[in-house]
Write a protein that binds this DNA or RNA. Sequence first.
DNA 1: GAAAGAATGCTAAAAAGTTACATTTGGTGC
DNA 2: GCACCAAATGTAACTTTTTAGCATTCTTTC
Lengths: 227, 227
Amino acid sequence: MKVFRKKNKKLSDFLSEDVLEVLYAAGREQSYDDGEMIQQRGDKWRGISIVQTGEAIAANVGRDGSIVPSALIKPGDTFGEFTTFLDLPRSHTIFANGRTKIRHIKRDRFLALIEAEPAISQAMLTLTLERNYELVSNLDSNRRLSLPARVARLLIAEFDKTEKAGTIVCRQEDLAFMIGVSRVAVGKALDKLAAQSLIETGYGKIHVPDTVALKKYLRRQDPLSST
Amino acid sequence: MKVFRKKNKKLSDFLSEDVLEVLYAAGREQSYDDGEMIQQRGDKWRGISIVQTGEAIAANVGRDGSIVPSALIKPGDTFGEFTTFLDLPRSHTIFANGRTKIRHIKRDRFLALIEAEPAISQAMLTLTLERNYELVSNLDSNRRLSLPARVARLLIAEFDKTEKAGTIVCRQEDLAFMIGVSRVAVGKALDKLAAQSLIETGYGKIHVPDTVALKKYLRRQDPLSST
DNA sequence: GAAAGAATGCTAAAAAGTTACATTTGGTGC
DNA sequence: GCACCAAATGTAACTTTTTAGCATTCTTTC
């Protein structure tokens, strides 16, 4: 399964080298083999973890026992905030995707650290607000927009602002998962977009001949959209 | 329209009297009459606002121009975080609901303040993470659960943990709005719950004779649910 | 206690989404 | 290059939800 790249900012974008070093020094680095479990949903271990090299996949177990990946965690990304600040157990099971090194910082140690270095909690606050905003605007779009528009929104997000055209390599099933509907529904939505020549579908890929036109289409559907 | 109460924590739950005083002193108090507009979607004014007395309603403008309330902001609640930390324009239009006093703190002033008082950004971080967690678990439920189960979940959230039974005063339309479906669909879902004697519907109210039974029903539908 | 307004109930048709199964596509080994 | 297999997409029947209209029931108020 393809997990779409998150283009989000990271802690390291907000912290100076000095602070980062202090932060890293507070943790214990651990290596994981490809596929190895890093944490399990429900685990009580509390603290912040930072991916150093490699990547990890956060997943949930579906009702039928199948494993449903939900996010790709890349170098510089953190997880464990809920356990550290909200006293909640781990909400996802996380696996290493390829050989991966992760730095774990114990809760108490981390809390002491942000006491000493206020920049850390401010950086985390900014990141969390960003994520929050993203969640809210997704929720909002999903309410107001038709499925073709939501698909268009997702496709647009995969392009950099300046790209005029391009091909996205992904299966319809991946899009379906991200949006939270069935593959068939996505297929129909893609048909509708294709009927307006906004996209061209292929086997395992989708070509967008004119990103500007697609954005214009989305704006027509969603006047409030600022994206 | 009834807007469901948020039972969330507030900044004041995390900050000492001293810090709170400093925070309040940094702002300028402003009074609003009932219905007066406090901010408008798109406004560029940056800073944090804290409700002191009264309450405010955050709303969005629907596609048809109708005003759709989306949250009730109560004393102690804050808004404006996105504008302060993410450089985004105001995402909602906010009206005073009854005579309301609000303390506005300018962005630069606020940033200087959290530099001096790290406890503030840490408190905000905790609050934001909490909200984040709520959003994620909602998103998740909505994906996996049938409509009756989602309705049940919403009803359960209205009770305190200890309450064994009770009546919720709300229109089906309010439930529909919160879940994001039509009133008719909610009506049918309520019928299904009523058929299992989990609830009793009334005019503008819903009675839950046994919250434990309702929770049990929800858990049956959603094994992952911890709520 | 009648009238007006508010909320729910009901119906039917259309739209959107799901499930299960069929077909097409692209790679692999020979 | 061809036969085959797995992966990805397409199709069709079915279910859920929406929309929209009107009917009914409940509450408040005069």
